[in-house]
Amino acid sequence: MKKVATPEYDIKDKLKYHVSALSTAAKEVVMPLNITTHYPRERRKWPDCFRGYILFDPERCISCFECSFVCPANAIWMKEAPSGRYYPTLDYGKCIFCHFCVDSCPGGALRSTKIHDVAYKNMDEMFTHTEEMIEPPEIIREDEGYVEYEIDKEDLTLKRTKGKDKLIVDVAPSQGVPMVSLCIDRGSCIACKVCEKVCESGAVSSLLDEAKMIIKMKIDSEKCTGCGLCVKECSMQILRLVRRE
């Protein structure tokens, strides 16, 4: 246990402290330890893992709704594309840049950029449709250089580099563990067809068995993207998401 006591300061101490305060100030006026980034003429270089505006790649999207489900701010709503599939839209009027969605995306369709300094004139513009999230947006760049904070064992120093910092990071899209949907108890199936209706990839099909007058469901594991929606919606809870072998 460490005790911190505040002693009585006598006149000598006070004078000493006056001198040290004044001399520190004087030193700083002469040789300042300046750390200012001159935004907008220059930008700070953020680390590559910086969480900024989000880009979307429809090729990799499996329409699993997970980004939308996990979003704490409910900023991601799925919108039906002309093809009938659901793709995310992003409302920057709500987005908190936690990137739970980016981390959730099993196909790696969402990725981060270092864009973050944007001002909107009205809130309607903040709603970003799927079509706008595919190509990197262009922002006003008034910067002629960028600043890096370098911390060594002595102090923080600013390293200034001419040229424009790249805001779109090239990282390989991450892939979640590949999964596939599997029915574990065919006998309990009531053929409500929910799984077929909810499937994005057309992997679930229903077959009417004329002889027995029952409907049989079938999951095509080749087509299945492992989005897990059928597992979630199954009214009998007999579907499981298992690892693709």
């Binding site: 006026v29 300046n34 200012t36 001159h38």
Partner: peptide, 14 residues
């Protein structure tokens, strides 16, 4: 400007 310098920044400039 001077107080800005003392405070590790620049003060009015742009």
């Amino acid at each position: 400007k001077m107080v800005g310098r003392m405070q590790w920044r620049v003060g009015p400039r742009e």
